[in-house]
Design a protein around this nucleic acid. Structure first.
Lengths: 245, 245
DNA sequence: CGCGATTTGTGCACGCCTTCACAAGCGCCT
DNA sequence: AGGCGCTTGTGAAGGCGTGCACAAATCGCG
């Protein structure tokens, strides 16, 4: 799994860039900037101001500038940022130039959809293997890829150079799958199962729980409903969420 | 901001609980606590300590206690928290006792999976209407529910009392769908489309972008790879991520 | 060549969140 | 009844993230 040197960031021949340790909050926003930049590039923009990019990404312009400043100085005062250069920079930082191989475990309801989701392929990833424990599903093709039995996971991870695993199994099976992924050498896991995973230090886990997102919205609905139902309660909020697309 | 009291929480006849204004970070964790509590209840636990619940939810025990203290004092010193009571409390706070009606717009690849996801139904929500703009899909049943044309959205929202909308359309259609949802009276939106939505103040939007999650993991992979490749670079991290399930 | 308009990069202050550490409270056992 | 162990609830401190406001830098134009 360990790849070696990456050399220097593209378009910046001389500088030996130590790997920057960016704030987590910044890292989480870089992909959003990247998406906005790709949109701008498609629309033919060569440069963009922090104000413009911030609007497109839905953030404050000062925050955007501070985020980008952590990557280095890639803007030009009085002009803005070079769109193509910034795309290269962010893709380099995120490690997207490698088109990482991803394994997807669990091709049930959700997993099936994920296997067919073209957003992965178009944004820097290759799903190279699908696994399931159910014999009914093994051997059938999804999107041109055969579902393999989970027992083959270890071998496939090594052979295909898989570095990221996606878990889309029921909660009950998720921990066992995570253990197998880790044992096979995977060090990053995206977990869609509604449960907490226990992994060794050095392994990163991100969790997406669809029901939790709804429950958070439900709280705000509940709160808003209480406010409007009350005498003197105010329906409007002072915050502004509107953002240019 | 300025809110008054609502009704009373269940199982606590006397106390007039003003609607608490919880920190956002706390709100985002409550659903996780709730899930862990349901697990405990199924396993026959009547009470649980902050340590135990924190482990099951994957957080620090001090943080858990502080979070719960914002809801009021529902623990017993020397004993712990009453599982059933805490479940009721959190469900009340999150507004889950109302089983909110949800509309899902876009039954393509991902939307189809969401329509069939039983995690919504089992955790406090009812998907009551499916919409799509594609005539091919309109009229066909998914999980016992007919797909309706998007033009019917406005009427359905009112008739079915829908308060939450889920957008699972391509990015290009998302803003228009959001506008229609808002116009129909929906005030909470869960957006799976990879784009920024612009909505009026008072409407809550949460976004789930699957590719972004992978890109964040990719960054960490990239970083880990750089470190291990470096002379003197350390492969291990001092942080501990392991958490009991 | 110099000046003004424009935009980046950043020092600083503020607020939120996390974590520690401990006092207060509760139940059990003798 | 009294003491002891356990657990909650919280004050205080520290760290992180955000956003303002401005200096520094660049371009274009007369």
């Amino acid at each position: 799994m360990s790849q070696q040197r990456h050399g220097n960031p593209p378009g910046n021949a001389g500088a030996v860039t130590a790997f920057p340790d960016l704030p987590e909050a910044t890292i989480a926003r870089l992909p959003e900037y990247l998406r906005a930049l790709h949109n701008l590039a498609e629309n033919g923009s060569d440069t963009v101001s922090s104000e413009g990019l911030a609007a497109a990404a839905g953030v404050n312009s000062a925050k955007l500038r501070k985020d980008l400043s952590h990557l280095g100085s890639y803007g030009t005062r009085g002009v803005g940022y070079d769109v193509a250069l910034l795309i290269d920079q962010i893709e380099y930082i995120l490690g997207l130039d490698e088109r990482r191989a991803v394994a997807l475990v669990g091709v049930g309801n959700l997993g099936h959809a994920l296997a067919g989701y073209d957003g992965f392929a178009s944004r820097g990833f290759r799903i190279v293997a699908l696994f399931d424990a159910d014999a009914e599903r093994v051997g059938k093709p999804i999107n041109g890829l055969l579902v393999r039995h989970i027992d083959e996971l270890g071998r496939a991870v090594v052979e295909e150079g898989i570095t990221i695993g996606v878990i889309a199994t029921p909660a009950g099976a998720a921990q066992a799958v995570a253990d197998e992924l880790v044992a096979a050498g995977v060090t990053s896991i995206l977990n869609f199962a509604p449960c907490v995973l226990s992994v060794p230090a050095g392994v990163d886990v991100r969790k997406v729980d669809l029901a939790i997102e709804l429950q958070i919205l439900s709280f705000h609905e509940h709160r808003k409903a209480s406010l409007t139902a009350l005498p003197g309660g105010r329906a409007d909020e002072s915050g502004i969420e509107a953002v240019g697309s």
